[in-house]
Design a protein around this nucleic acid. Structure first.
Length: 1089
RNA sequence: GGGCCCGUGGCGGAAUCGGCAGACGCGGCGGACUUAAAAUCCGCUUGGGAGAAAUCUCAGUGAGGGUUCGAGUCCCUCCGGGCCCA
């Protein structure tokens, strides 16, 4: 029995009332007991106490970054949800894996170190202790023996190990999976794979034809032994899933760090306003792009919120199109210049059907051809202007370059040949083309792309129509096919208007134009009988001919207006416009939608391509096939997804298990030499320098070592080597921590085969709950790593997280001034009911929902709430606020309602004066029935994560029992035990305390220390249905009466009862019953008039 | 600008499959207990109208339209808010 001193100074409060004091006495007691007894510890398969008969359930929280500010009320929301589900699943017979850990590398600790000199490790250990203490105060049923932190050497040793696996693997595009590099070398050595001149791997017999200009035929690809040692090394390094790549970054020399785009404002750092330069930097990259298709396909197999799947799809950004080579027209006698420039510019386009409209080309400022032209300029090249432009553009962030309204650019002096039209087209440099997408070069089709159009207008370049929507297509057709008697004066206008009306209202396509024009002409000459024709014209049967006439007149009038607005009343203007393909130039805006191809016919080297009149989708397929056959281009899928920049110039992250030799070659550290420990450094201030200098470079003794010291057996032990000084980004540890939970103390493997097979199985984590802010990055990166580990045989599930759920944001009420700015909560004063003004200024304030923030003074500290109400009340409140996925405002006032619920429930079972159980000797039938229903509802609601309604059901039970009880006991001992078990997942401390006071025997007669080890109560299906139900009788959808009928009454019986009902019968007098809809158990609806 | 999601009492929300809108909690109002207050307990609480009352009646889920015997729920247009991409 718990010793609870009278918690209230007032003598009138009973000694054993459930209140904050009682909660704060019993909760720590149970928490200590659970921890000491290891109640929530789950053994692994093969360990003592493992129960193989139970199915597994792996429920996972997104582990927190332990910030110095401590726990926020948002944290326990998701954690309470998983705790309820985990506790419920345990009681329902599962082995539940539920662990907490710490995502503990990251910038804030490093910033703290800069400010205070305190080692990030010391600081972080402290914040972890705070977080752990705060979380334990909630009574979450975590298996704390499995706790991990990403900063533990025993943990990041395996993060480094996975990096070595990425480094030591390549993506086989034919098998579509990762394989060890050794197997790649094997296939190169045995001749199955060769190396094309552009570095691509060619699989003998399996590769599609490569392009004429750049690729070369498989026959010309070189064999492995024909490569020099350096070439062999480069070939292999180009295939690794972890590779060194060059990436343009925002470098701020003054701050000594690389900045994110968001941290750069107008070329200066947000912090301190120092100049920022865009600088190419060699860094570690992870080849996530190889998995683009797998990452996309896998989304169809998981139970995730549609919104999140959609975000990932967009992020991956798959687009189908073609790549095409535009030969450069170099036209020079100087072989040196020829050699410096590539033979062609390769472009990617999602609209190959518009290639006939490609009247110029644009390359990115970073494109290698720009530097080549600057070295060996053409006669027309404006060298200084080009140099200056490229320089400036390279120092502007991609987002800003794309956002700029005014198009800028410089002519390179180069021309290329449009491969289908044979036209010589100018090549420009412009900043709206990015090096990162496609090949950093585009074919510009001004008539069908907004940015190309703007550029063409500004630089006076040709704009040529190649796609028309159907109506414009019909105009073009008529312009070319009008008879001479129609073209004079006004004869053509009504004819064309009728044709357009006919075409559009009947959804005709260009192949019908000839027929349509004939039809319209015949009609106008009055050669055909009128009625049928006009009905056909309208596409529906009009009431009479007059209507048709009016309708037709209106349509013709509208089209005449449209034509006139485009071409005036001049047929010649229209003819000329379409003959020269200048419709969009005349319109002043491009058309980027689908339609029908026009002006798109050519014969190249004896092969004819004819797209005219084809719908866009067919035109795309046709031109792509043609490009493929002629070797000018080929089908190509492109992705928006970029390879993952994996290097950071920070201190507080995982060191790379990589060393470099004097000549810059990189070598891996041996797996058994891991971890590569983070060295201590004297200070954390970034170096001020012209070149990015990672902080670890300060640890000079650590950086310069020997292969033997470093544990790199690929080199002679005496070789001098330099360690990689970048560290891994914050995402690294979070990519795989959920695997470590399954086997956290294993020092022979990141997770044992058996533990992984049991806890993850072939479906992965059963439920993952966390914020939607991680919809893309974390959840994409983790899937990528998991897929690599799957390919290499370390995990059995193709996807890591079977079911994903995002809890909503907890917001807060705040106050808005009339000018829409927000006022801190402590400045608001309530002057009347619901009326607020700002203190001092007297400005009227409107309550609004806003994010919690320190400046608004609306942040709630969980510790304070627990002190005031107890953890169980807190848990219930957060779950009761609304649907788990919804964003919802915190309102401290509402908490009292949940506290009262526990208090009332407690009072039903426990005598407030004595603390002893108060039990009825016989069960009340109504209460018993409600208890069965409550258990059923709670069970159903937990399964669908609808905790708010589950709690409402328990409150209803308590309300009913309270009403029925009056002042005498209402629950029998058995009922009380069932109630406690039902409450246990939600309010585990209160439930266990009730359980203990009820004798420590659960509802199935087991003596258990805690309800966590009890069973989820069963309910009687028979108790869920009533013998009789009250249903509504509606007359034309309005409820007119309620009837009580047997629950099993069928539709026929319901109808009979309803029609004879004394309240209904009079209402039907003099009316005919047209229809009766009877839904058993729901209602009867009578339609009568 | 494009895509997605959401608008229900004074507030948070419920209505799980197209079937009686507003469960449950907060707040408010009234009552019991109390010298009093707090706490606790009981009752009422979408709006309008009628009635002494039980109750009856009309309207009602951002606005307008549509599908349906029946729409908070499905479809279209618009307004407002949020998120993502540009």
């Amino acid at each position: 029995m718990t010793e609870t001193a009278s918690p209230n100074p007032s003598s009138t409060t009973p000694a054993h009332r459930y209140n904050a004091a009682l909660a704060n006495a019993i909760e720590p007691k149970w928490q200590k007991l659970w921890l000491d007894a290891g109640v929530h510890h789950r053994p692994n398969p093969g360990e003592r106490g493992f129960d193989a008969s139970r199915p597994k359930f792996y429920v996972l929280d997104m582990f927190p970054y332990p910030s110095g500010a401590g726990l926020h009320v948002g944290h326990p929301e998701g954690y309470t949800a998983t705790d309820i589900l985990g506790r419920y699943k345990k009681m329902a017979g599962h082995n539940v894996l539920h662990v907490m850990g710490w995502d503990a590398f990251g910038l804030p600790a490093e910033q703290h170190a800069i400010n205070t000199g305190e080692h990030p490790a010391t600081f972080t250990r402290g914040t972890i202790d705070t977080f752990r203490r705060q979380l334990q105060r909630f009574g979450f049923a975590y298996d704390w023996s499995r706790e991990v932190a990403t900063i533990d050497e025993a943990f990041y040793r395996w993060t480094q190990w996975i990096f070595l696996k990425l480094y030591g693997s390549w993506f086989d595009p034919w098998q579509k999976k990762a394989r060890p590099i050794a197997e790649l070398i094997g296939e190169l050595e045995n001749g199955d794979l060769r190396i094309a001149s552009d570095g691509e791997l060619v699989h003998v017999g399996r590769t599609a034809k490569t392009l004429n200009a750049l690729g070369g035929e498989p026959g010309t690809a070189r064999r492995w032994h024909e490569l020099s040692k350096d070439e062999q090394r480069a070939t292999i390094d180009d295939q690794r899933l972890a590779f060194v790549g060059e990436q343009t970054v925002n470098w701020c020399p003054k701050l000594g760090t690389v900045l994110a785009n968001e941290e750069v404002i107008d070329g200066r750092s947000e912090r301190g306003s120092h100049p920022v330069f865009r600088k190419p930097l060699k860094q570690w990259m992870l080849r996530i792009t190889a998995y683009a298709d797998r990452l996309l396909e896998g989304l169809e197999t998981v139970d995730w919120p549609e919104d999140t799947r959609s975000k990932q799809r967009h992020w991956i950004g798959k687009s189908e199109g073609a790549e095409v080579d535009f030969a450069l027209d170099i036209d020079t006698d100087d072989p040196e210049i020829d050699a410096d420039l590539p033979p062609a510019l390769r472009v990617f386009t999602t609209r190959p059907d518009t290639i006939f409209g490609a009247t110029f080309m644009v390359i990115a400022p970073e494109h290698p051809v720009v530097d080549a032209v600057l070295r060996t300029p053409r006669p027309q090249t404006p060298v200084e202007e080009l140099r200056a432009y490229a320089e400036k553009a390279r120092n502007t962030a991609d987002v800003d370059r794309q956002a700029a309204k005014e198009k800028t650019g410089v002519f390179t002096g180069l021309h290329a040949i449009n491969p289908v039209t044979g036209d010589r087209v100018p090549v420009y440099v412009a900043d709206y083309v990015l090096m990162g997408y496609g090949y950093g070069a585009i074919m510009a089709v001004p008539a069908h792309d907004e940015r190309d159009f703007a550029f063409a207008e500004k630089f006076g370049l040709a704009i040529r129509d190649v796609v028309y929507p159907v109506a414009i297509s019909a105009m073009a057709y008529y312009a070319a096919n009008a008879t001479s008697d129609e073209t004079g004066d006004e004869g053509w206008l009504p004819t064309l208007a009728d044709m357009l009306g006919y075409v559009t209202s009947n959804d005709l396509t260009p192949k019908d134009f000839e027929h349509a024009l004939t039809h319209v002409r015949k009609n106008r000459r009055g050669e055909k009988p009128v009625p049928e024709e006009r009905q056909e014209l309208v596409g529906a049967s009009p009431a009479d001919l007059a209507d048709t006439e009016r309708w037709r007149g209106a349509v013709r009038g509208q089209w005449i207006d449209t034509i006139e607005s485009l071409f005036g009343r001049s047929f010649e203007t229209m003819r000329e416009t379409f003959a020269s393909g200048a419709y969009y130039a005349r319109q002043g805006q491009p058309y980027d939608g689908n339609g029908y191809a026009a002006n798109s016919t050519a014969t190249v080297e004896g092969s004819t391509v004819l797209l005219d009149g084809m719908p866009t989708s067919k035109a795309k397929a046709t031109i792509t096939d043609w490009l493929d056959q002629t070797g000018i281009g080929r089908r190509r899928t492109n992705f928006k997804l970029r390879d993952w920049l994996f290097s950071r110039q920070r201190y507080w992250g995982e060191p790379f298990p990589i060393v470099f030799t004097e000549n810059g070659d990189h070598y891996p550290i041996d797996a058994d030499a891991l971890p590569v420990k983070l060295p201590d450094i004297a200070d954390y201030e970034p170096a001020v320098s012209e070149d990015p200098q990672p902080l670890l470079a300060k640890a000079t003794d650590w950086v310069r070592t020997t292969a033997g010291e470093a544990g790199c057996s690929a080199l002679d032990p005496a070789t001098v080597v330099y360690r990689e000084t970048n560290t891994m980004p914050g995402w690294a540890g979070s990519c795989w921590y959920y695997l470590r939970y399954a086997d956290p103390h294993n020092d022979a493997a990141l997770v044992s085969k058996e533990a992984q097979a049991y806890w993850l199985g072939d479906r992965g984590v059963d439920l993952y709950i966390g914020g939607s802010e991680h919809a893309v990055l974390h959840l994409l990166y983790a899937r990528f790593w998991h897929m690599v580990l799957y390919d290499l045989g370390y995990v059995d599930s193709p996807e890591p997280f079977r079911k994903l759920f995002h809890q909503g944001l907890i917001t807060a009420f705040s106050f808005q001034r009339p000018d829409k700015t927000l006022a801190p909560n402590d400045t608001a004063e309530e002057v009347a009911e619901g009326q607020y003004v700002e203190k001092g200024t007297g400005v009227k304030l409107t309550p609004v929902v806003a994010k919690m923030s320190k400046t608004l003074k609306n942040v709630v500290n969980p510790d304070d709430i627990i002190a005031e109400f107890g953890a169980d009340t807190f848990r219930l409140y957060e779950m009761y606020m609304g649907p788990l996925e919804a964003s919802k405002p915190w309102n401290t006032r509402d908490i009292m309602g949940l506290h009262r619920f526990l208090q009332r429930l407690w009072r039903l079972v426990i005598d407030e004066e004595t603390g002893e159980p108060r039990l009825a000797s016989a069960a009340d039938a109504g209460v018993d029935k409600q208890l069965h229903r409550t258990i059923a509802k709670v069970e159903n609601d937990i399964e669908r994560l609808s905790f708010n309604t589950a709690i409402a059901a328990m409150i209803e039970l308590v309300n009913l029992a309270t009403t029925k009880a009056g002042s005498v006991p209402i629950f029998t001992q058995q009922q009380a035990r069932r109630v406690a078990a039902t409450l246990a997942p939600f309010a585990p401390h209160t439930a266990d305390e009730l359980h203990e006071r009820l004798g420590g025997v659960d509802h199935v007669g087991q003596q258990v220390q805690t309800l966590y080890n009890s069973a989820w109560p069963k309910y009687d299906e028979g108790q869920l249905v009533d013998d009789e139900v009250e249903i509504a009788v509606q007359l034309a959808g309005k409820v007119k009466a309620r009837i009580t009928v047997p629950a099993d009454a069928d539709a026929k019986k319901l109808e009979a009862i309803a029609l004879e009902h004394p309240e209904i019968k009079p209402l039907l007098e003099g009316k005919t019953v047209r229809k009766v809809i009877a839904v058993p158990g729901r209602l009867v609806n009578i339609v009568a008039n």
